[in-house]
């Protein structure tokens, strides 16, 4: 009866090959996840750390930014019809400073209009911000559609400068 006391309880299928295969599978699964999470973290640290400059900061840093690509945020204060090349030309303002933006690329969303804050990716070319991506930054408020609604008051936009708009 002594032999039955120390039973061999190791699983029967646990020969060397399958143990190695299981270990490889475990490492593959965890390796894949570590890689994906690493990629997301890399993206976060390289592009989300300073997501955008406001117009006033971007103008103040024009010298050091040179022709590097960055994002700029401001409220649309005026808009022109597209030029001959199909570029969208408008002005954005923030913190009492405004700048002209020339956007070439995908059309902005339907929400794009005067009084709406936008985030644009591009670079300085002289005094004009050359945009290659134009995103509408929607606010937190929601309002039912109402035909009697009072039109948007431009003076409410942050950093709006009434006398300093581009022709």
């Amino acid at each position: 009866m002594t032999e039955s006391q120390d039973l061999d309880l190791t699983p029967r299928d646990a020969d060397d090959v399958s143990v190695g295969r299981k270990r490889l599978r475990n490492w593959l699964i965890m390796g894949t996840f570590t890689a994906v999470i690493g990629f997301v973290l890399f993206q976060a640290l390289t592009s989300a750390a300073q997501f955008y400059y406001n117009v006033d900061e971007a103008v103040a840093r024009r010298g050091e930014l040179e022709d590097s690509t960055f994002r700029i945020q401001g409220t649309v204060t005026s808009e022109q019809a597209p030029d001959a090349n199909g570029a969208l030309i408008f002005t954005i303002a923030y913190g009492g400073v405004d700048t002209a933006v020339r956007h070439v690329g995908a059309e902005p969303s339907d929400l794009f209009e005067i009084g709406i804050p936008v985030v644009s990716e591009g670079h300085w070319e002289g005094d004009v911000f050359q945009s290659r991506q134009l995103l509408v930054k929607h606010s937190e408020s929601y309002e039912a559609e109402n035909p009697d609604r009072v039109e948007y008051d431009l003076d409410d936009t942050p950093g709006y400068v009434p006398d300093n708009t581009v022709e």
Binding site: Q43, T46, A106, E107, P108, S109, L111, L135, V136, K137
Partner: peptide, 8 residues
Amino acid sequence: TWGVYWQW
């Protein structure tokens, strides 16, 4: 809304 599906 923004004009893109994804942004980092």
